[in-house]
Amino acid sequence: MDCTSFIEVFSNNSGVVYQCDNELCFYVEFEGRRAKYSVRNLKQLKVKLNNFKIEEIFAVDSLNPSGTEIVTISTTNYCYILNPLQIIRFRELLAQTFFNLHVNQVLRDKLHYAVFA
């Protein structure tokens, strides 16, 4: 691992997300597992996690009473089998990650691109 290009974007008790500037990708560590994602794949993962309706899992007539969900992203080999609590934690990890990425976007716009203007 090239430490100079590996930057922590966000971390909490559930995991950590790094950005690799050399490879233009992200490394996501969630509950001990590490996976490499492109920008597009990371966005897809976030959308998939957000699309799960947690409240439906706890409904009396739920079609999925165990609450277990399988998450896969096309073009990657990663597969997560998540319970509702893990889905919530994973969502939090990615929500904060994207928040920090947007903060970085604003800072870069003001500090870096402004130099070229």
């Binding site: 930057i7 950005q19 500037d21 492109s38 920008v39 966005k43 990425l101 970085n104 870069r108 716009d109």
Partner: peptide, 14 residues
């Protein structure tokens, strides 16, 4: 730190 979101796409997620 590079802005990978911007590098990959001109338009925002929204």
């Amino acid at each position: 730190m590079k802005d990978l979101l911007r590098v990959k796409s001109l338009i925002s997620t929204e």
